[in-house]
């Protein structure tokens, strides 16, 4: 798990990764949506590309939801997930739990408790690499 001592630093670190490292275009392009999915969002990093989707969708303010995800890339040993509101500089009041099964998994216990811009931050660790992927959504 990628652990960060301070949320603000963690966000900055994540953004650095997101901006500084150009996506591995070929790997991202080759990462297909899981066959049994009808929706979902693809987020590409340097090492891994993630497909993820919330359940239930869409995410509503102050309502619990889960995430299903599928990762393309090298084998994954650990995944951590957290939510972050960059404008307010706070995270969630809940600690999500990740169940990892190979390159796929679910995250339970998520809740975004305010309207506005939220980041879903996925910390991925493999045997030789670690990476942070960020997806953003604005809750109305």
């Amino acid at each position: 798990m990628v652990r960060h001592g301070r949320p603000a630093l963690a966000a900055a670190f994540a953004l650095l990764l997101a901006f500084a490292l150009p996506p591995a275009a070929s790997q991202a392009a080759a990462c297909a949506r899981p066959a049994d999915w009808t929706g979902g969002t693809k987020t590409a990093g340097e090492v891994w590309t993630a497909w993820w989707r919330p359940d239930p969708a869409p995410i509503k303010v102050s309502a619990h939801f889960s995430i299903r995800f599928h990762l393309c890339g090298p084998p994954v040993s650990r995944v951590s997930v957290r939510g972050w509101m960059p404008d307010h500089r706070h995270g969630m009041n809940y600690r999500p739990v990740v169940a990892l099964n190979g390159g796929s998994g679910t995250v339970d216990g998520l809740l975004f408790h305010m309207p506005g811009l939220w980041q879903l931050i996925l910390g991925i660790r493999g045997e030789t690499a670690r990476e942070t992927l960020i997806a953003e959504t604005v809750l109305e």
Binding site: L15, A18, G39, P54, I134, A135, E136
Partner: peptide, 11 residues
Amino acid sequence: MTPWHSRASAA
């Protein structure tokens, strides 16, 4: 579907 997007596309 929730309007997810990457930071680059959001910008």
